[in-house]
Amino acid sequence: MFEYKFEKVIISNGLKERQDNNMEQVEKAIVDHAKDGWRLVQVLVVPKEKAGLFMINYYKIIFEREI
């Protein structure tokens, strides 16, 4: 049996920032959780639903570990 954990990384959208600037936060979350026995399942890119163009709203990171 497994337990699951979900973490949200909000995208900062400053005028001079690219949407991938938050990937360092995603990578840090993965490494930090791995130290506690969590395994990465998937990183979801969640778009802004009301934007006319594809814009990333946040990353949802899914972890699992055996219990």
Rank of each mutant, 00 (worst) to 15 (best):
residue 1 M to R: 07
residue 1 M to Q: 10
residue 1 M to Y: 06
residue 2 F to N: 13
residue 2 F to W: 10
residue 2 F to E: 07
residue 2 F to R: 02
residue 3 E to C: 09
residue 3 E to G: 08
residue 4 Y to L: 07
residue 5 K to L: 13
residue 5 K to H: 09
residue 5 K to M: 09
residue 5 K to W: 02
residue 8 K to H: 07
residue 8 K to N: 11
residue 9 V to T: 01
residue 10 I to W: 02
residue 11 I to R: 06
residue 11 I to G: 03
residue 13 N to Q: 08
residue 14 G to N: 14
residue 15 L to V: 01
residue 17 E to W: 03
residue 19 Q to G: 00
residue 21 N to Y: 11
residue 22 N to S: 06
residue 22 N to A: 15
residue 26 V to M: 11
residue 26 V to Y: 04
residue 27 E to Q: 10
residue 28 K to C: 00
residue 28 K to L: 13
residue 29 A to K: 15
residue 32 D to E: 15
residue 33 H to R: 08
residue 33 H to N: 15
residue 34 A to D: 00
residue 34 A to Q: 15
residue 35 K to Q: 10
residue 35 K to Y: 10
residue 36 D to Q: 15
residue 36 D to V: 03
residue 36 D to W: 08
residue 38 W to S: 09
residue 38 W to Y: 07
residue 39 R to K: 15
residue 39 R to A: 14
residue 39 R to E: 13
residue 40 L to R: 06
residue 40 L to P: 00
residue 42 Q to Y: 06
residue 43 V to R: 06
residue 46 V to E: 03
residue 47 P to T: 13
residue 47 P to E: 10
residue 48 K to Y: 07
residue 50 K to E: 05
residue 52 G to E: 14
residue 52 G to L: 15
residue 55 M to Y: 05
residue 56 I to W: 03
residue 58 Y to L: 01
residue 59 Y to S: 04
residue 60 K to F: 01
residue 60 K to R: 15
residue 62 I to L: 04
residue 62 I to C: 06
residue 62 I to W: 01
residue 62 I to K: 07
residue 63 F to S: 10
residue 63 F to I: 03
residue 64 E to K: 14
residue 66 E to V: 11
residue 67 I to Q: 08
residue 67 I to M: 11
